[in-house]
Design a protein around this nucleic acid. Structure first.
Lengths: 471, 471
DNA sequence: CTGAAAGCGCTTACAG
DNA sequence: CTGAAAGCGCTTACAG
């Protein structure tokens, strides 16, 4: 094979190349001998920067175009002739070789490699090494490459702002380091907090997440799941499972590992709060305060969270001898508006409840709005218990009694379980323990409690005040 | 080229193939004549479903393995001999042909094509058509393909659960239909709502979003931006720009279109609320109520939102002849805890303010928590104004006066602007108009107002009650 | 209307 | 330690 060197002495290396003839002036047309003509121009000046040669230099870069066949850049190099003389030559990377006699068809592409995209091939060309060497040098743990090469490659990569193309990587390796996360809606701070735990844990483990909102709508669940599978996620965390949907069973056949979070399903791996226990805690609290006629803002009955919080509560009341009639249990959403509506309904009953248990803090705020508009106050007229113990609960003008759920931890743990699954380990479902914080919405002059240190065990009635109320 | 047909009469089509000899029994080893041996087994029974032929059939499918060279599936077909007799034959797709004599090296891959992955090639093979035909038939607007082929292809694709590989698509076409979204944190419902608007608009336009939390930390902004660029997003919406960071200027050089949302920057395209005007509205409201000593919970001074709300407010007070001293303006975050801390500080001043303007509703809730613990009430002791008018504001036990910001619309509009940019249009920055809703936290017995219909114009002092207060 | 080829950017087992 | 080749799954302009 003929030897070609650049004006800076570096060797031209390419699997397949073709040298034509000596340098031409701008605008002159070159017959390349391989059925392509190169027209010298300075339009590719932009690409010149790489070598930093002036036009006067024998290493001038030229552009070429042959009818409608645009081919890459044309480089002017020195050919080392048989008698070791060095002659300036036009070099067409990638052209010629065995197939020189034929024209390569080059499908026009919209802009697959936008101007300025730095690829391994570009770095390789500039360094005079093979693309595989560059790949190795840039790999996380470069093995079988000289330290010097690694340094050279990485320096140039840094300079040029090289960024590994994730699509190409994924196509080659079959994995994306992407985890899909499905939630009903991120505008619910409960889900946003769980997602936060998932995302941070994923990042720490070298993964990234892509989250989709499915609004508890089966059609969106399906289409967004499809999207994630299309994007070849390595695993999925499902935060929107519903007992009235068979989406999960379909996921089963996909071969993509997944874990449920927040909401459980029979026979599925999940990480959630013990919502039955949470409901029970709320019930024991209200029972101990003497409430017998309770209204429940139950949340979505097809979400295990809403269903189990409600069930746990009702069971405890039934066990105590005060079963709740169905018309005091109002299916709802988990947001302020739903709570408002359910609250309006409960307070309009002929015999309104003396206490209301809401399956979420925001629903409880909605209930308190309905009370306020009726001139009712908590806890004197109606006591209110929320669920999740969000930041806002303890700072409300009437601090809200709430069942604390370790949301961030739940998200983080679900991700850790999924990571185990990805490593091929066997895993089991997890239940996190809830804690009830009594506050002024149920116990008038109760101490104000914060959940800053997230205790694991129920502390109903067992706590001493952590922060005294300022008079 | 020899002709091969399947037992169902379809033609075997492949660029390169090799036929060996007649069908063997299970477990028997076949010398293929091209340096590969095929061992007949029924392990590939799974793949058989495609043709639905029984093992007794001449069309039985067999698996093969040759030392460490695993090659694809081996199919049994009928060879049409010279005298037009049809003989059962082993067919190795992709093997043989001109290069038959040599062994193909097959780098072992972790699992680039996990078992059960349906590809165009698989569908093509099963249908006896070329992969390009399948691609065309599956394209959104199939042109130059017979309606019958389209139907056949799509039916099989549906049956087999084919999903286009997004990585391959992106690598080929150079675009991903993915939009990156950068926000400080999704646990802030303000950002989550903006993101919701972005996401829904993106989906309607055939795009998907991938969102990252940067926690207002420059290091995370940088690394998460890098990640997005690695993932080849087609465009970026920046919700976390900071006046103390030069991240945006770097984005400029990347060639990826982007739009700022919520927070503005000089000389950048952005979609935001007119925060100066919002601050002014709050100021005019408190001025009209006679407040002269004001505290401001100012939010992050390096976010244009916090800075401009504060500036708009201070300008209006200065213009009215009551400039605010700096020590009544407390930099903070936008969350409950920050509001609580800033509120504690303001209320501990020797001359506490008679009204507090908080740059966010949650900060205002924190302020009200600090007031409650001091036995102070709004508006009698201290009036409170928030910003954004979230759902929770109007349902609080003391409904919060707040400056409404059209958050969802802001997100949606920012996405529409980015879409224009992606289509190569010229775009300009947009400012959305805020609206002040007076409620009980500043005007004791004021009508309760909801913002259900998101009016565009300021309505300070101009409105009539939309919903009467229930006694 | 369909087939055949090329190539997007990357990694990896093999050969030297 | 480096080069050369193959191929991941897809689209597209050309040829027939």
């Amino acid at each position: 094979m003929t030897k070609y060197i650049r004006c800076d002495g570096t060797k031209v290396q390419h699997s397949c190349h073709r040298v034509d003839r000596t340098l031409s002036e701008e605008g002159e047309s070159l017959e390349t001998g391989c059925a392509r003509r190169a027209i010298v121009s300075n339009e590719t000046e932009a690409a010149t920067g790489v070598y930093g040669r002036s036009a006067a230099d024998a290493g001038k870069h030229v552009g070429n175009s042959v009818g409608k066949w645009a081919c890459g850049s044309v480089e002017v190099v020195h050919r080392v002739s048989a008698d070791d003389r060095v002659v300036p030559t036009v070099y067409l990377p990638g052209a010629g070789g065995a197939g020189c006699g034929r024209i390569h068809r080059m499908p026009s592409r919209k802009s697959p490699a936008p101007r300025g995209t730095v690829t391994l091939a570009l770095l390789a060309e500039q360094l005079g090494v093979h693309v595989s060497t560059v790949s190795r040098a840039l790999s996380e743990n470069p093995v079988g490459v000289s330290a010097e090469t690694v340094a050279r490659v990485r320096e140039l990569a840094g300079e040029q702002g090289y960024r590994r193309n994730a699509a190409a990587l994924s196509l080659r390796t079959g994995r994306t380091k992407m985890i899909g996360v499905m939630v009903p809606r991120l505008t619910d701070v409960v889900l946003a907090t769980i997602y936060d735990g998932i995302d941070q844990t994923a990042i720490d483990a070298g993964y990234n997440t892509v989250v989709v909102n499915t609004r508890d709508r089966p059609d969106l669940q399906r289409s967004r799941l499809d999207l994630m599978l299309s994007r070849q996620v390595d695993g999925i965390i499902v935060g929107d499972s519903r007992t009235d949907s068979n989406l999960i069973s379909e996921l089963h056949g996909c071969g993509v590992p997944y874990v449920l979070v927040a909401r459980r399903m029979p026979r599925e791996i999940s990480v959630s709060t013990d919502d039955l226990e949470g409901g029970r805690l709320a019930a024991e609290h209200l029972l101990s305060l003497g409430h017998r006629r309770i209204g429940i803002v139950a949340g979505d009955p097809h979400a295990s969270t809403g269903a189990e919080r409600t069930l746990g509560f009702r069971r405890a009341y039934a066990a105590a001898g005060y079963p709740l009639p169905d018309d005091y249990v109002i299916p709802s959403g988990f947001d302020v508006r739903s709570g408002r509506e359910a609250g309006d309904h409960l307070l309009s009953l002929p015999h309104p409840p003396t206490a209301i248990f809401a399956a979420s803090d925001f629903a409880a705020v909605g209930v308190m709005g309905a009370m306020r508009d009726r001139g009712l106050e908590a806890p004197g007229d109606v006591a209110v218990v929320g669920f999740n113990d969000l930041d806002v609960a303890s700072e409300l003008p009437t601090p809200l009694t709430s069942v604390h759920s370790p949301l961030f931890e739940m998200g983080a743990l679900s991700m850790r379980v999924l990571l185990s699954l990805l490593r091929g380990r066997r895993v089991r479902s997890r239940l996190l323990q809830p804690t009830l914080y009594p506050r002024a919405s149920t116990v008038g002059e109760s101490p104000i409690r914060t959940s800053a240190d997230h205790p694991r065990r129920s502390e109903v009635g067992a706590g001493s005040p952590r922060r005294a109320q300022v008079p």
